[in-house]
């Protein structure tokens, strides 16, 4: 894949939090074609695999993350009739309830935006090089990948 495909406006890897309202406003600004705006926000949960979690640290592989996300977005655009896309993924130290990830997709009618949003999230889970280290009551723990996430992504084949 060419690096030219990476559109910085569509992808942001950042330490800072994001505003759902601001992101929706950007997806809608001067966009009278699209009647559907579908957003997904992922947050840090207080529990995982039966253990209390007090926070997590998100590591990533700079440059490859942007590239992997750009490729996922490009695939979604080829597969569905969608308008604008925005993917935000936070890195670094995060606390319970903090927002981790945002996926926003617009389309003329709702089906395309719904499907593309879920597809982008499912592929992000298995293709984008991010890793979570949880701070649990038993100490620090790198999260193990879940087979369920692999199975979910395969459903789009």
């Amino acid at each position: 894949m060419s690096d030219k495909l990476i559109k910085p406006l569509e992808i942001s890897i950042q330490i800072a939090d994001f505003s759902l309202a601001e992101e929706v406003a950007l997806l809608e600004k001067d966009n009278a074609i699209d009647g559907a705006v579908v957003t997904f926000t992922g947050r840090v949960r207080n529990k995982n695999e039966g253990l209390r979690v007090s926070g997590l640290f998100l590591e990533h592989y700079p440059q490859m993350t942007e590239r992997a996300l750009a490729e996922i977005i490009e695939t979604a655009k080829q597969r569905w009739n969608i308008g604008r896309v925005k993917v935000i993924h936070r890195i670094g130290q995060l606390n319970i309830g903090d927002q981790i990830v945002f996926v926003g997709v617009t389309s003329e009618h709702r089906q395309d935006a719904f499907a593309a949003n879920e597809f982008i999230m499912d592929y992000l889970k298995v293709k984008a090089p991010f890793w979570k280290k949880e701070l649990t009551e038993e100490g620090e723990k790198w999260l193990a990948a879940r087979n369920a996430d692999q199975d979910k992504a395969k459903q789009w084949n």
Binding site: H60, V101, V126, W142
Partner: peptide, 25 residues
């Protein structure tokens, strides 16, 4: 920066990365 399998050809100048299955999102 592209995911590859074990038989993938590499050459001088390449950047190769090894890592566990990803767990973002």
């Amino acid at each position: 920066h592209d995911m590859v399998d074990g038989e993938y050809s590499i050459k001088s100048g390449d950047e190769v990365a090894f890592f566990p299955p990803v767990t973002g999102g």
